[in-house]
Write a protein that binds this DNA or RNA. Structure first.
Lengths: 234, 234
DNA sequence: CACACTGCTATACGGTTGTAAAATAGCAGC
DNA sequence: GCTGCTATTTTACAACCGTATAGCAGTGTG
């Protein structure tokens, strides 16, 4: 009987629907790369018609930018949460950050594929650029916070925070890319070990360009510390 | 007079035409990112009709793979040539490699944009995967050759070549990405300095995970050296 | 149960896409 | 100058693209 047929579709509140469309977008990126980003493909993945997308988002590129932000923030929150757990020393928290960074969920090639497509859009799309700037600033802040805590640890020589964060961030990104493009090159544990080595070298004062002059040992009041120079000496 | 009009097109030998189409493909990638990769766009950039592309290449994706290989090899040859010039010590050659890596030509955002698009295709296209494997192997071989020369230098502690090459490659890639996505974060000279710092730490034996046991000092014949372990200890 | 709200689909539009193949035209060689 | 080779253009095809909008249908409320 017609009255007893399943409904053709199920209505959902707009926020629920937008999240579902974002999930479908990320799933299409994983599966098909850049070719996954069409309203018909995303609609099919979400089980809705293509028209719903431009109903809920100003444009497809707005949906893509929202997806980038969702993925970035969820990964950063996951990593940050793991770094905060239970570790007592700054060194231990940094190590947990590395483990979270190279967790299986983050080394999923699908995540990396999605990231590549997002990155490739940054230079041509203002909304993507804005999302990148926000989420990257948050990521750098988290990393610098961990390095600042390390900086304050006993026995650690004083170092320049900003270039240290740059170098560590580069090492993390580079290893992540290597692990994603060439999964057989090394295991996640090897990547964590390489980063731990970097921390060991930093704590041993082995990066001449990152070192700051040590504090004088006296208890006399010292003048205001000079600001850290933004230029790394040659 | 009709007879005196310019010819409608100029014929070219197939190899010349293929190179021109590859150059046009790279130019379109620089300008438009992934959207640049259509036969009509590439044809317009090269000043020919779209049909010529599928005449000279089995498919558009074959042209894209050929473009990736051309770009990879030309950049690697340029870097390798600069690293070989005039530097006498292994340390100096490595430093020149860094300078070549962060040369303005390589930090061109257009190069990076092209690279991102190529990378995003590796996991979905067998021809792209094959090009990547070949050119990446060549790049790693060049890097390991430089590290091997450093390894033999006087005063340098023995280290594991392969994980050292992995870590250095990751740092280079990461800094290159950072410099390309966020050009204001640091200057090329700062990136070179960070890499030089990494070399200093390696030469100082500051990476515990990379160190090998030192050679015995006696002149007795030693048994064959054990093979370097592929697994980095935790 | 009827109705109103609004989430959602179906349809349409103008445009782009990659590939194939027939036809054209440049030009080297005789 | 003519001819044949082949580089290249032109045309066509089926499919996809993003967006807009009229109208449908789910469903909560009175």
């Amino acid at each position: 009987m017609a009255r007893e047929q399943q409904p053709k579709f199920r209505r959902a509140p707009p926020t629920v629907r937008r999240e579902a469309l974002i999930e479908a977008t990320l799933a299409c990126l994983r599966k098909y790369g850049h070719d996954g980003l069409s309203v018909r493909r995303i609609g099919a993945e979400a089980g809705v018609s293509a028209g719903l997308i431009t109903h809920h988002f100003p444009s497809v590129s707005a949906l893509i930018a929202a997806s980038y932000e969702t993925l970035s923030l969820s990964l950063l929150q996951s990593i940050d949460r793991q770094a905060r757990e239970s570790g007592t020393t700054a060194r231990e928290r940094l190590r947990r950050f590395y483990e979270a960074w190279f967790a299986p969920a983050l080394l999923d090639p699908g995540i990396f594929n999605a990231w590549l497509v997002f990155w490739s859009m940054i230079s041509h799309d203002a909304a993507m650029r804005a999302v990148h700037d926000r989420t990257y600033a948050a990521y750098r802040a988290a990393l610098e916070s961990l390095l600042r805590q390390l900086h304050r640890s006993e026995g650690v020589p004083r170092f320049r925070l900003r270039p240290a964060a740059i170098a560590l961030s580069a090492l993390l990104d580079g290893l992540w890319i290597e692990a994603s493009i060439n999964p057989r090159t090394f295991k996640a544990a090897e990547a964590v070990a390489l980063c731990e080595d970097w921390t060991s070298a930093l704590c041993a004062g082995a990066f001449p360009g990152l070192l700051l002059a040590p504090r004088p040992a006296t208890r006399r009041r010292r003048p205001r510390q000079p600001r850290e120079s933004p230029v790394i000496p040659a």
